[in-house]
């Protein structure tokens, strides 16, 4: 019984979602299920917030490893909530100021780190150890060259070759991955809907 009810719920919900895709008359059922999910997800935000506080209060209380970062997290969490709830979130308010002047730049800083990580990853990936790595290196070099003005200045056909690499072999590879992934998605969905895969319920074997 412990497994039967969750499996039945999974089966019914899964079949409704498949059905509503092919049978327009049942679309409202699918929409209702999606609305239910949104309600559950919204309620779960509180769980997340409680978990965050719980973990960090626990760290401070027991002076766990690196506990000194936890007061900063809790303070940031509290300040954002208090300013948002009591002073409003409209432009010009402290919440909006902290979001646009602190959160957004910090996010942008993290994103900009990507440039350095791309450089270090490219350095490793483009080492011409064998013929495949060499092929990768050459094609990447041509693509990069074709995307900057100096490429066309060196040879007018480089941008065309670059575009061909992106649109033919690269796109073919991407589509192959996507078709394979789609097969995997169908198989995973069928396994879960029909209760063949039940490890997530703790009853794998």
């Amino acid at each position: 019984m412990r497994l039967v009810i969750p499996l039945m719920i999974t089966f019914v919900a899964g079949m409704i979602m498949i059905l509503q895709f092919f049978v327009p008359a049942t679309q409202s059922m699918g929409e209702s299920l999606q609305e239910w999910y949104m309600i559950v997800a919204s309620a779960a935000i509180f769980l997340g917030a409680i978990n965050l506080l719980n973990v960090h209060i626990h760290k401070i209380r027991f002076k766990a490893k690196n506990w000194k970062y936890s007061p900063v997290t809790i303070a940031g969490f509290a300040v954002m909530i208090i300013t948002g709830l009591f002073l409003g979130i409209e432009p010009g308010r402290p919440f909006d100021f902290m979001f646009t002047q602190m959160m957004v730049p910090m996010g942008a800083t993290m994103f900009s780190l990507l440039a350095f990580f791309v450089a270090s990853a490219a350095f490793r990936a483009f080492r011409a150890n064998n013929w495949r790595a060499t092929l990768l290196l050459v094609s990447a070099f041509v693509v990069m060259l074709g995307r900057v003005p100096i490429g066309a200045m060196i040879w007018s056909k480089i941008p065309g070759i670059s575009e061909w690499i992106m649109q033919v072999p690269n796109l073919a590879g991407q589509r192959a991955v996507m078709i394979g992934a789609a097969m995997g998605m169908v198989a995973t969905s069928l396994r879960m809907i029909f209760g063949i895969e039940r490890s997530y319920l703790g009853g794998a074997d």
Partner: peptide
């Protein structure tokens, strides 16, 4: 890569019916 992510659970379980679904995939 791609489909291998979806095959992982079945592959790790070594369960015949899950491996069968991989073969079907």
């Amino acid at each position: 890569i791609g489909e291998e992510l979806f095959a992982a659970s079945a592959y790790l379980s070594k369960e015949p019916k899950l491996l069968g679904s991989l073969r079907g995939q």
